[in-house]
Computed example of a mutant assay.
Amino acid sequence: MFYNYFVLTEYDDFTDEQISKKKLYPDNSNQLMTIADLANYLNCSKQKIYQLTSNRKIPFRKLGNQIMFKKVEIDNWIDEQKIEVFKPMLKAKNF
């Protein structure tokens, strides 16, 4: 499930039923994801997502009592996690 940030902000407290009524298509750049959605998107456990949020290692928002993730920020965060790979230097044979 993905949610639109601008639609959700009209509520003070969110229930699952209220949020489930605001489903959007995956190509919307203002999508918000729940912890379960993000765990599915990243193919990891919900515990891992809770760990990343509690350590503030991943961008998130608290809307009412719910932790939500903006898809575009998650995609940018994934790009920032890139690890540079260096090619090993070739040894010269004549030395």
Rank of each mutant, 00 (worst) to 15 (best):
S20H: 08
L52I: 07
T53K: 00
N55K: 13
L52M: 07
D16I: 10
L24D: 14
W77P: 00
Y41H: 05
N28G: 06
I67N: 02
D12L: 15
I35G: 04
D13S: 13
I35M: 08
Y50Q: 11
Q18D: 06
Q51L: 12
E80P: 01
A92Q: 11
F69R: 00
L24A: 08
D13C: 10
W77T: 06
L42A: 02
Y50P: 15
V72D: 12
F2E: 13
D27H: 08
Y41A: 02
K91C: 09
F60L: 08
A36L: 14
R61Y: 14
K70P: 01
K57V: 08
R56W: 04
N43M: 10
F2S: 07
K48F: 00
F95D: 13
K48Y: 07
K48G: 01
S29V: 11
F14H: 03
C44G: 05
L63I: 07
K91T: 10
K48A: 10
A36P: 11
P26N: 09
A92M: 12
Y5A: 15
K87L: 14
V85T: 13
N4G: 10
K87R: 15
Q18A: 07
N94R: 08
M1Y: 14
A39Y: 05
Y25W: 06
K71H: 00
I35R: 06
T53C: 01
V72Y: 01
K23R: 12
M33F: 03
Y50V: 04
K93Q: 02
E73Y: 04
V7L: 09
I49A: 04
K46I: 05
N65C: 02
E80M: 11
Q66V: 04
Y3S: 05
T53Y: 03
K21W: 02
K71D: 04
N40T: 06
R56K: 12
M89E: 15
Q51A: 14
L24Y: 07
K22M: 09
K91M: 08
F86T: 10
K87P: 12
M89L: 15
D37V: 01
L24T: 12
I67P: 02
Y3I: 01
I58C: 00
L8N: 03
Q31R: 13
F86Y: 13
R61K: 12
S29L: 11
W77F: 09
C44Y: 06
M89T: 14
V72C: 01
M68N: 02
D79W: 01
D12M: 14
F60R: 00
Y41M: 04
N28F: 03
L8M: 04
K46L: 08
R61V: 12
Y41T: 08
A92D: 15
K23Y: 07
A39P: 10
I74V: 02
F86L: 11
A39V: 12
L52Q: 05
V85Q: 09
Q31F: 03
N4Y: 02
Y25P: 04
L52S: 07
N30M: 05
I83P: 08
F6T: 13
L32R: 08
M89R: 15
K70A: 00
E17M: 07
Y11E: 06
L63C: 06
N4W: 08
N28L: 07
V7T: 15
R56D: 11
K71R: 05
L42D: 07
K93Y: 05
D13E: 12
K87C: 15
M1V: 15
R56V: 10
K71V: 02
M89D: 15
